[in-house]
């Protein structure tokens, strides 16, 4: 992959990073590993004119998470019982599958860990590269 393409990919991940409120996220997809980090000193300069107060920033946590994203375009079918945030995975297991033209594409946890985010709901359409789960190792 060229640097330009990595930059494009990283921008997409930054959305997931902000949503989850983590300090950094690392994504592996077999060919590439991309890590995005939140800037440590992100105090915004306040404009002098009156603006509504910004909500207090969500506390960021210095943790390493693997984001598991979809390899296909399809509909999410969560495992039953559904994986929930906060759950411990003590073995490699299937978290969901993404259904594409009637074919089930399994989404596995790729090892053990602590589920810190579930980005999708049952029946949700997802695209290639869309974040599904974040797992702290």
């Amino acid at each position: 992959m060229t640097e330009d393409v990595i930059a494009v990919r990283a921008r997409a991940l930054a959305g997931a990073l902000a949503e989850a409120g983590f300090a950094r996220l690392r994504v592996r997809d077999g060919e590439t590993e991309i890590e995005v980090r939140r800037a440590s000193h992100s105090a915004p300069v306040r404009p002098s004119c009156a603006v509504p107060a910004e909500p207090a920033p969500r506390p960021t946590v210095e943790r390493m998470a693997d984001v598991i994203s979809s390899d296909v375009v399809g509909i999410v079918r969560l495992a039953r019982p559904a994986i929930v945030e906060g759950q411990e995975l003590d073995e490699d297991r299937e978290l969901a599958f993404v259904e594409t033209l009637g074919i089930r594409n399994p989404v596995r946890s790729r090892g053990t860990g602590h589920v810190i985010a579930v980005f999708v709901t049952e029946g949700q359409p997802v695209e290639y590269g869309q974040a599904l789960f974040a797992i702290e190792r």
Binding site: V5, V73, G74
Partner: peptide, 26 residues
């Protein structure tokens, strides 16, 4: 718009299952 794959065309713009799936979902 749907992302259907990584840069190389064989995995994105030539990825028939992902393209048909995007058409059906939408």
């Amino acid at each position: 718009a749907f992302c259907v794959g990584p840069g190389p065309a064989t995995r994105s713009y030539l990825n028939i299952p992902n393209i048909i799936s995007a058409a059906l979902i939408s």
